[in-house]
Design a protein around this nucleic acid. Structure first.
Lengths: 201, 201
DNA sequence: ATATGTCAAGAGTAATTACTCTAATTGTAA
DNA sequence: TTACAATTAGAGTAATTACTCTTGACATAT
């Protein structure tokens, strides 16, 4: 593997186990047994490393998001994959607002991406409604459910940590349960049947 | 006002406008026109300042939480007050996980308090169910709603920021709307009537 | 009047951070 | 082989951070 990629990997490892402030460029270099000069040959500073890690995460994520889940089963299958990414880059969500406040460029970029992300989720819910998976007795339900997803995706793991629970790769199942619980009052018979089959498979 | 309290106030102001790492003890002292020595006479280091700010927030908060909301109207009235505190100490929630990772003592303390907090909310929902404000057609609904409240309280403002929205003192109304939306499918006629009166007052 | 504790100023500093710079080594294309 | 670029090592450093230490002012009790 290239030194450039190994730096990202080592940084990710250190960021996840401690935090971005504790893991200085000097530390990262020492941890992987290369010189500081070498590290700075590849990356201007820690900000750039974090930025590249964000872009890397995005690549892994948007690959998955490219085609929206078309029905309720696809939605929950999709969430399993997302949860792996949330775990892999957990440092990022743990420090999200702090990181954005320290790097204006990252902030601009993240907000742009995040707004687009929300839009996609919103459209996904509209599709579900049109497919007959979702009842919409009141106007604002799709907005409501979209906010729930956004909250859970970014902050479910952090919330678990604030309750003293250690998070792991599989810990996102509870989050999926929560999302399903939020959707439950609006699921149609058709959707419930599909989920029953999904759960048994 | 005592110097000791003025330090907290100045630190809070700086933490909110920038972040806790940018606002060093040296900066805080300079910002309020006292010497570094003086600041360190009152507080050992920045961690202690943050810890005291947390305790101060807790005092303001638990005063409110002492008696649980007994019905749906009290619940939403209570949330208005809480939102002021979330705004006043917004730096804390913005950096929550980061701060906990840097100060093990704060982490232990916060988790302990937060678990207790969740417990109170959970009991509050049980009371609502017993009062006849809340239907409980499935077992896990109270857990579901408790998680919703926990997520929204800690992370609603941060989520807004990740969507590029500037938050302010009143921005928590949307959050209240979200919570109400989450509860809506389970509200009884009695609760809906009470809320109608509440909205008109 | 003096002693004692509290509060404050500000100079000084060890440690760390976030790099830069130079020189050496390695790969690679002609 | 010989340029030449890419990569790497590691010494060196300016700036910052997070304090400590000494000295002094002021208030209060004896």
């Amino acid at each position: 593997m290239s030194t450039k990629q190994r730096i990202l990997d080592t940084a990710l490892e250190l960021f996840n186990t401690t935090n971005t402030q504790a893991a200085t460029t000097n530390h990262i270099a020492k941890a992987m047994g290369i010189s500081v000069g070498n590290l700075h040959y590849h990356y201007k500073n820690r900000e750039e490393i974090i930025f590249r890690l964000y872009e890397q995460m995005l690549t892994e994520n948007t690959l998955l998001v490219e085609d929206l889940p078309k029905n309720i089963v696809e939605l929950f299958e999709h969430q399993k994959l997302v949860s792996k990414i949330l775990w892999k880059y957990r440092f990022f969500y743990r420090e999200l607002l702090f990181l954005l406040s320290r790097d204006p460029e990252l902030k601009t970029r993240y907000i742009k991406d995040n707004i687009a992300h929300r839009q996609r989720i919103r459209i996904g819910f509209e599709n579900l409604a049109q497919n007959g998976d979702l009842n919409v007795p009141y106007d604002n339900i799709l907005e409501q459910l979209t906010d729930t997803i956004m909250l859970v995706l970014s902050f479910w793991n952090p919330m678990l940590e604030t309750l003293g629970k250690e998070i792991d790769e599989n810990g996102f199942e509870e989050a999926t349960t929560h999302i399903r619980g939020a959707m439950r009052p609006y699921l149609t018979e058709q959707a419930l049947d599909a989920l029953k089959v999904f759960a048994e498979s």
